[in-house]
Write a protein that binds this DNA or RNA. Sequence first.
DNA 1: GGATTGTGTATTTTT
DNA 2: TACACAATCC
Length: 747
Amino acid sequence: MTEPGLPQPMPVATLPPHLEGLNAEQLAAVTAPDGPLLVLAGAGTGKTRVLTTRLAHMLLEGRARPGEVLAVTFTNKAAREMNERVEQLLRRPVQGMWLGTFHSIGARILRRHAERVGLESGFTILDTDDQLRLLKQLIEAADLDVKKWPPRILGGIIQRWKDRGWAPDHVPTAEYGEFALGRSVALYKAYQARLRTLNACDFGDLLLHNLTLFKEHADVLEEYQRRFKAVLVDEYQDTNVAQYLWLRLLAQVRKNVTCVGDDDQSIYSWRGAEVGNILRFEQDFPGAAVVRLERNYRSTGHILGCASRLITHNESRHGKTLWTDDVAGEPVRVAGLWDDEEEARFVGEELEALQRAGEPLRGAAVLVRAGFQTRSFEERFIAIGLPYRVVGGPRFYERAEIRDAIAYLRVIAQPDDDLALERIVNVPRRGLGDSTLAHLRAYARARDCSLHAAVRELVETDELKPKPRRALSDLVATFERWRGLMETAPARELCETVLEESGYVAMWQADKSPDAPGRLDNLKELVHAVGEFESLSGFLEHVSLVMENVTDPTSDMATIMTLHGAKGLEFDTVFLGGWEEGVFPNQRALDEGGRAALEEERRLAYVGITRSRRRCFVLFAANRRLYQGWVSSLPSRFVDELPAEHCEFLHRDGFAANRLRSPGLPPRRDGDPLARFNAARSRKGPIVEAVAEIVPDADGGFDIGMRIFHDKFGYGRIEAVDGDKLDIAFDKAGRKKVIASFVQAVP
DNA sequence: GGATTGTGTATTTTT
DNA sequence: TACACAATCC
């Protein structure tokens, strides 16, 4: 057996096909004997490959059968990929592995033993939206002002508690906090009780109930401890306490656990992830083997140089030194732009240049810190007709029409799903408004039964007015009929029928708003998606656990996404936008988390740079449009932390000079942003050089800085010229783009 | 009960 | 700016 750290090169001839092409460290990790193993794998070092190959290797050696393997990932995509690669390595389909996300496996286990924690096996998995509506009801029921104590905040608090593995009774008094004057735990308790009567779970519960299950039912725990001969964990640095406890319970008997991760890529502490888990692995599993993967196969030398240097500014890390044999390649290009519009224009031009050079757009990505930054890029790309996709934007299953349709299906599958029923009871309109609903709720609460049960009873009485009573009894009867259909008709057919007969499709057909056709398309797509599943419940499980968009990989588009979304991906060319203090590192994160948060932001920057294979751009803008008004900012401290020898600092001729001299640009809060901007950079010299002269237009037309008059907007000053379009800061009307022929020069 | 207008507030990051 | 929610009116 190969010793970690002292790998013996195997004679090539004896190497089985699935181990071919691995380097010594990778091979050591893959072939390490049973027992605790930590693989510290830097970005681009073949982490996923090692994990999947080790799994395949174990199966091939007969150390575990598929049904005895537990392999957990964070994303559905990673799980899918892992499954595919294992099958590729084994050259056959593999069935029965417990391979999936923490949540999906948690759900799978919970469904088998639901009654042990006070649920029924058919429990519903609530999404965030349902959760918030429920919390809102509870906050109101507690006579608290929803404005003052927003459900969102409470949801966040509860989620963090669950991430730490705390059921309501286990929340330490010190953690009660200020929310609702310290009543947050009472609300948490009420929330859990309500979930139980609804036979529902939220995301956090999937693991929390597992923990309760394992702690209170030793026989169940033992069953799984015996079953799982091998436990493998991807992205271990992102595990939270609940996940960590869960894993430890499952692995503590056999101790055959492989964790793969990179402490430098831990970027989810805000979601409860504990870098400590990975830093502590060797204490948790004494005698653990540790393998470091430091050879990077992804990026060129300059890119790796930048990333490596940047991350050395962090103090709490295992410490790895990535290296590569690759060429130095192109230096990382760092560009300072005037504003976010200019930033987007810059990226647009670079992308067009790539296109002209014959490179596919799908190899390029714009990575940003926060969602709002995608806007200017989208606007620009639309303007120049550049195909792009935004990953992580509004998701398919979160669209209102899809959620409505799914609510119908949920009520069919689970009549007591009150949240689903409430959602669609009056969609389309059936004359069942607030007052009827209030009546129903009161009745259900008094009887401690579900809304559905309340409806069934109430329609038999004359407590309701004839109209709503009629509507309700019709609705109940219709659902009853659909439920009968569930037994006989295929899921797809049922879905179609429901959408038709409920009048839901008709509702959108009658809608004349511009987005109605799109919504109808989405509904068709939903019907199609349902068709992929055997049963309705199978589909619903998928919907609650797999909330992701599937993107068509064949179309050639540039990608825009957040840095978080980009983890685990790679692109030939990467644009990192918005490297400004406040944006990145994010001010709010800094305020909340202090130095630890700064380090996390820096890891995020590291993740960003290491996504790129060959080309990387770092961009920052002096001014940024933020909901109302402009904010000017300084270049991110991360820019200063990039090593000059691996970077090229750019400015483009013309733009800097023009902008600097043009007065009255976005409102200045304190002095000239560009001056501050450069002053802050004085150590390395200005990125955006000040040039004294304004270069007049050759044709004697409109110049930057010129005063003009516009019939509608009044007086203003030209900020930029783009062909016949002028970018003008009007004295009264703000900044606008107008066609040159509509303005006249003022002497 | 439903539609319309007005007001307030929000922008991290997501399984 | 843009959306969600509430108050108000029909």
